[in-house]
């Protein structure tokens, strides 16, 4: 009997070690960014394509001028409420002392500089597809933004989801950098990069499974609004029949074909998309039109 208990204990220990090994916070090799030069101007485009300001500015911040990434917006979910942290270049409360490699580990692997898992409310399961060149440029741009000393607030997450170690299991199951769709032309490839990687459109427009994972079988087919009220529309050709030209105009001005205007979180997205090159807006529209029609 005693031997059995010892054996079970050893087996449990082995299992935990295996879990820990498979799910430890991943990082890039220390020379991953070697040879890349940073261009802050290109980084500004990456910043808007990735929509960083939409979540990391203060609640109801004005959209004029350089964005102040002081954090504070809350994001309700079935697991609790996440509060976006300060990612301004403040060295105490923001990310002012982060290297470009720190930023790359956060964006591509959801790993903090001190080796902790981030919650996937930070959409690294989309950003994992971002190129290291883009992240290098983004880092240079973010360091030009105004620093702000507002402390980040803790998330309001209940047990057992407040155990960050468990996120390793989530990442093991759901985090990868595979493309979700095929892209036949350079324009569709650019559109795919903007939608599936930087734009992280699927984080809201795709329904989630029981573990909060994006359900790839219903890619961009629409989902309930996480606030609990209303829904986020599907944007595959089956649900959204706007001509490409109308999509492009919506991305530029926020006007729908009926001249209603974007509202809610999508209004943030339009603010970002309107700052991109016209070619990028056209690429996103081309991507959406090329999606399988769905159910």
């Amino acid at each position: 009997m005693r031997r059995l208990i010892v054996r079970l204990f050893l087996l449990g220990l082995l299992g935990f070690a295996a879990f820990w090994f498979l799910t430890r916070p991943e990082t890039l090799p220390s020379d991953a960014l070697e040879g890349l030069t940073a261009d802050a101007t290109r980084g500004e485009t990456v910043f808007y394509a990735a929509g960083c300001a939409s979540c990391h500015t203060a609640p109801n911040a004005e959209s004029e001028g350089a964005p102040v990434l002081s954090g504070g917006q809350s994001f309700p979910s079935p697991f609790g409420t996440f509060i976006a942290p300060n990612i301004s270049p403040d060295t105490t409360h923001g990310i002012g002392d982060w290297s470009a490699l720190d930023l790359a580990n956060a964006i591509k692997h959801g790993t903090s500089p001190d080796g902790q898992h981030y919650y996937p409310a930070f959409p690294y399961s989309s950003y994992s597809r971002a190129t290291l060149q883009d992240i290098t440029d983004l880092h240079a741009y973010m360091m030009t933004l105004p620093a702000d000393a507002t402390p980040s607030q803790p998330h309001d997450i209940g047990f057992p989801f407040n155990i960050r170690l468990s996120l390793g299991g989530w990442k093991f199951l759901f985090l990868n950098d595979d493309w979700i769709t095929e892209a036949a032309t350079p324009e569709l490839e650019r559109g795919r990069y903007l939608v599936e990687a930087l734009g992280h459109c699927g984080e809201c427009h795709t329904p989630r499974g029981p573990l909060g994972n994006v359900d790839l079988d219903q890619w961009l087919a629409g989902a309930p609004d996480p606030s609990g009220k209303g829904k986020i529309p599907g944007i595959t050709p089956a649900q959204l029949d706007w001509p490409a030209q109308d999509l492009v105009y919506y991305f530029e001005t926020g006007f729908t074909p009926d001249y209603d205007s974007a509202g809610g979180h999508m209004a943030h997205v339009i603010e970002n998309l309107s700052k991109l090159d016209a070619g990028d807006r056209e690429a996103i529209a081309a991507y959406l039109k090329a999606l399988p029609a769905g159910q």
Partner: peptide, 20 residues
């Protein structure tokens, strides 16, 4: 047109519920 659309969205952003 862009500024006009922006002014519509600036109010629809905080004060309009998502479509149901």
């Amino acid at each position: 047109m862009g500024a006009l659309g922006g002014s519509c969205s600036s109010c629809h952003k905080p004060y309009r519920e998502p479509e149901s």
